[in-house]
Amino acid sequence: MHVHFLDPYRPGQSPIHKLDSRVKFVLTLAFIFAAALTPTGAWAIYILLLALVLGVEVLSELRVGYVLKRAALALPFILAALPIVFTMPGEPRFILSIGPWALTASLPGLERFISIAIKSWVSVQAAIVLASTTEFPDLLMAMRAVRVPRLLVSIFGLMWRYLFVLADEAIRLMRARLSRSGVSDQAGLKPGGSLAWRARVTGGMAGSLFVRAFERSDRIYMAMLARGYDGEARSEPLQALSGASWVVLALSLFTLLALLVFALLFWA
């Protein structure tokens, strides 16, 4: 079995798939930036942002259910923001009793908590759409376009190339460990070993993964030398952005800006 199915890219021919990756990259960042700048409690703007990202999901022909399910991954972190519901001063809303404690939820606290949750939720959806409709080499191109240093882009590229190879290796290691994690029929034995031993074995697996990665990188380096590599990362120059791409970029940025101005007018 291979872990390729974890690659979030979903091939397709939708307008979002075809959109220049540089435009998508910048717009995703701009969208997340706009969500971050939207004031607490600007519900209408949140609805609009959500409508925007859902609209793009429909356009991208990704299943909206898929995006929403994936977006739930980021949900547990919301626990970190939960306390402000009860600690922010303001008009009390309801009282939560847990055993001997009574926690008073305030209105500003609730507003802030829900705002954080929605911002996080729409932002992660935008990031999912980007990753699901853009192949990694195109993302690398977008990184170059926004002036990420070439050396760093090369490291990203090489990491991507070997990511699934090494993830497979990790899974095979875990399977081999699991296969030998047996329970004896003999009575009175406690299986599993100590916690420290289990952690150390896992460390051994990680260590063997790293040693093999080092040796693999040596072989890759030699194969690169054999093809004339001299340490200079070269790549083809980026193509100019097409007229249509510029229009999409400008219009979308304008929409986001208008949304933001609207938000600031009413809720700042």
Binding site: L158, M159, E169, A206, F210, R216, Y221
Partner: peptide, 16 residues
């Protein structure tokens, strides 16, 4: 190659 492959190895190592 060294940093690229090691980055992949750290990523994979985090799965263990």
């Amino acid at each position: 190659p060294l940093m690229g492959v090691l980055a992949a190895a750290i990523f994979a190592g985090q799965m263990l």
